[in-house]
Simulated assay, not measured.
Amino acid sequence: MATTTAPTTESLSDAVRRQSMAEAHTIQAMVDYRDAEMARTALIESSLRRKIERSAIALTIGEATGMSEARIQLRLSIADRVRDKTPQVWEAFVDGIIDFSRVRDISATIEKLHREESVARLENRVVGYAADHTGTELRQWLRRFVQRVEADLAVERADAARKDRHVAVAHGDDSMSWLNAYLPSHEAAAIEARLRKEARKPADPDDDRTVAQREADLLVGWCTDSDAATSAIDANIAVTVGADVLAGATPGFAESTDGCWAVPAPWLADVVATGGTFWHRIVVDPVSDDVLAHEYVGRFAPDTLAVALQFLHGVCQAPGCMVPAERCDLDHRIPHPAGPTTGDNMGPLCRRHHNLKGHGLLHWSTSPPAELIVIELYPPTPAVEMEYVAA
Rank of each mutant, 00 (worst) to 15 (best):
T5A: 11
L12W: 13
S13W: 12
A22L: 13
T26S: 02
T26G: 00
A42Q: 11
R50A: 01
E63T: 04
M67E: 06
S68T: 15
A70K: 00
A70G: 01
L76R: 02
L76H: 00
V82F: 02
F93K: 07
V94N: 08
I98Y: 01
R102A: 05
T109S: 11
K112D: 13
L113S: 07
R125H: 10
Y129C: 13
D132V: 10
T136S: 10
D159S: 09
K163H: 07
V167Y: 05
V169M: 06
A170Y: 04
A170P: 00
H171G: 03
M176I: 14
L179H: 06
L183D: 11
H186Q: 01
A190S: 11
E192V: 07
K201C: 08
D206P: 06
D207T: 03
D208H: 15
E215D: 06
D217L: 08
L218V: 04
V220C: 04
T224Y: 07
A228K: 05
V241N: 11
V245E: 10
T250I: 07
F253D: 12
F253P: 10
E255C: 04
G259N: 11
C260D: 13
A265G: 03
V271A: 06
A273D: 09
T274D: 10
P286A: 10
V291N: 07
L292R: 02
L305H: 09
V307E: 04
C321H: 12
D329M: 13
C350R: 14
H354V: 02
L361Q: 14
L362G: 00
L362P: 01
W364G: 07
P368S: 03
I375E: 08
P380I: 15
T381V: 08
T381M: 04
Y388H: 09
